[in-house]
Write a protein that binds this DNA or RNA. Structure first.
Lengths: 228, 228
DNA sequence: TGTACATCAGTGAACGCGCGTTCACTGATGTAC
DNA sequence: TGTACATCAGTGAACGCGCGTTCACTGATGTAC
């Protein structure tokens, strides 16, 4: 058993983040107030500083948690399907991300919405930010190795983009053909773009069955590259 | 000549909006401060209320202007191409929207980023909001009438989505086949999604030539539906 | 097992700052006769 | 064309509120001997 004090400390950190997330849901990132959290906890506002050095540090913690959370649901969704059902895996990842976003819109906005003005994301956020991406990259690598995913015929991939894709392959230790990986980036963008459009209300009076629409779009995207 | 007073009034309204946009660029929508604008104008903070009833009314004006502005550059880009060059028209519209967004990131974020918490867009914003959409819908209608644009083979369009598309056709007075129009919505989403991804920094360490990437993606999107 | 000391959580007052909005007012500009 | 009155722009003080962060402090919990 690590010390009681240490355990209580961790619990209080969680409590602070929980209340912060609750506040975020009501008013958005830029209104996040340490004083309001302290009030909710019946503490002096200065007490928060025993747990977070500043407002920005709390924001960073929330951002990291959000990236991890959406990455985790994506991993789980992926893991729940047969390895060789590439299309199902892709759709499941997208649906999981969408459902998480719908359940936690403020946290989703924190990571995929307008960057918080004046807030510079520190390096600790980079790792968690790539967790969702990683799931998609590995899916693509699997499908390519299996012969089930092949680059469709789009416009030829520009040179600089090819070299960017080479870097990504090196980062993830994969060996996906550059045009295919570039397609993957587009698929990822379309996936998140669709989720954002729905959450931010741009399809409000355009599409009535949001859940069905997301599924349909994911199907379409997958169908463009996955052969089997 | 309409009265001098009325002319000065309009100029001051423009000046207020100009300073508001400048402030937006530095700090984002939720920090927009009437007092700061008044300071920039060497006026009493209360004087602003002669021109805008409240902070929200100013925000609304900025949102409307932004929708109009991005819609206008899209219209102009579209108009600059041969009517029958559907692919060029689509790419030009997307590039124009992207360039406007790059030149006015804060205003772009105002309309396509996280909704401002607690702000409910009034009905006056609906018209301007559909200006960009209208350009794309007309492009699609033209191309279909011409026989140059045909629905690609994606997954079948769900029933409720088809009926939504019927509503859009009625709104714009067009007669685009529902599956094709549904594809158009996806193209629109992918276009804006890509612009947002770049502006909000998600492709920062992924793609190095942003302008080239946008063009490439637009090419690809257009290639998926346009036959000629 | 008991005691002395160091560590840590939490307090409450204060600093210095910002904001939106209202209100009674002054003085200049436009309008009707 | 000149005068009387209504309209409007702009002022400055005030209300009531919020915030992040610092600092000297008390008192409880853990640790080393």
């Amino acid at each position: 058993v690590t010390g009681l004090r240490a355990r209580v400390r961790l619990e209080l950190i969680e409590e602070i983040k929980r209340l912060a997330r609750q506040q975020l849901a009501l008013s958005g990132a830029s209104e996040l107030s340490l004083r309001a959290i302290a009030r909710d906890m019946d503490m002096a506002s200065s007490a928060i500083y025993r747990y977070f050095e500043s407002r920005d540090e709390l924001l960073t913690a929330l951002i990291i948690d959000a990236y991890e959370a959406i990455g985790e649901v994506a991993e789980q969704a992926d893991a729940a399907h047969r390895r060789s059902s590439f299309k199902s895996r892709f759709v499941a990842i997208g649906v999981a991300a969408y459902e998480w976003a719908r359940a936690h819109p403020a946290e989703y906005a924190l990571i995929y919405g307008t960057p918080v003005p004046g807030y510079k994301a520190p390096d600790d956020t980079i790792g968690p930010a790539t967790r969702l991406t990683g799931v998609l990259v590995r899916l693509l690598a699997d499908g390519y190795a299996n012969g089930s995913i092949a680059p469709g015929d789009g416009s030829p991939t520009p040179r600089t983009l090819r070299s960017d894709m080479g870097d990504i392959n090196r980062t993830f230790g994969t060996n996906i053909p550059e045009p295919l990986l570039a397609h993957g980036v587009q698929a990822w963008t379309a996936m998140v773009g669709t989720i954002s459009f729905i959450l931010f209300g741009h399809l409000h009076s355009v599409v009535s069955d949001h859940d069905g629409y997301v599924r349909h779009v994911l199907d379409d995207i997958a169908g463009r590259t996955v052969t089997m």
